[in-house]
Design a protein around this nucleic acid. Sequence first.
DNA 1: CAGGATCCACCGTGATACTG
DNA 2: CAGTATCACGGTGGATCCTG
Lengths: 142, 142
Amino acid sequence: MSVANTAVTSQVKGHLPAGPCGDDDCGIRDVLDRLGDKWTVLVIVELSKGVRRFRELQRAIPGISQRMLTLTTKRLCQDGLVERTAYPTVPPQVDYRLTPMGHSLADTVFGLADWSRDHKDAIAAARSRWDVEHLGDEPAVR
Amino acid sequence: MSVANTAVTSQVKGHLPAGPCGDDDCGIRDVLDRLGDKWTVLVIVELSKGVRRFRELQRAIPGISQRMLTLTTKRLCQDGLVERTAYPTVPPQVDYRLTPMGHSLADTVFGLADWSRDHKDAIAAARSRWDVEHLGDEPAVR
DNA sequence: CAGGATCCACCGTGATACTG
DNA sequence: CAGTATCACGGTGGATCCTG
């Protein structure tokens, strides 16, 4: 999905020296592919509060399956955002914590969360406005 | 940049009611569902440069199909992030521009892009490190 | 407790053809 | 030009069972 136009970051604010952002999204695709999935953000947020064991994470994130928690944490570990520590006890004990880079991402995520919270109502309003304008007499299917 | 943390950022342990997810996503899920898809960010970035017609957008975003551009712009309009203007000419002319809220989101996206660019190498390094550690002698299939 | 392995349903996406 | 409609596919995630 390489974008052929110019830099992603240098436009609006113009403080960025293009750099490697000329042809792709300067890696933003990778990040969004993670953040965009169903559970990653929740795991990051939970881990931003402190060290968590596998089970603790699962309990803290209602609805996540064992499989998805495993996959999500593994991917975060692969990307160096989360550090996994396994103790050779029995039963096994494994805990996860954000790396410095993970905390850095968490801060950025919080920034996005701030934006979401600030504009939540406006978005909801826009959606209902769109509804009444476009399918006011249509067979509402969405 | 707008990613400057307002409130939630430093709430690593305090984690206030307005904080991201946990119980409710404070709307971040809605935002990430948009940003997480394949084309939305690219459209936002392109529109952050100025007004664009349908065809211009498609040319500016290599690989996007007519269908996906239609869907993406429609969703952005629904959310009040993009404004659509249709002129009753023939052939039709329609142009899209970011709303103020759209520009606001673009700023946040740029913040994420900044983070991505800054940590792109570190992530790549972590991934290859993970590779050699976990499948250094395995039938590497991924 | 932590996580691997399988099977399966869903839906986001792409390709193509058609319309106003 | 700016869409809409239909079909087919692949990946993501859910449910379940099994292991160390």
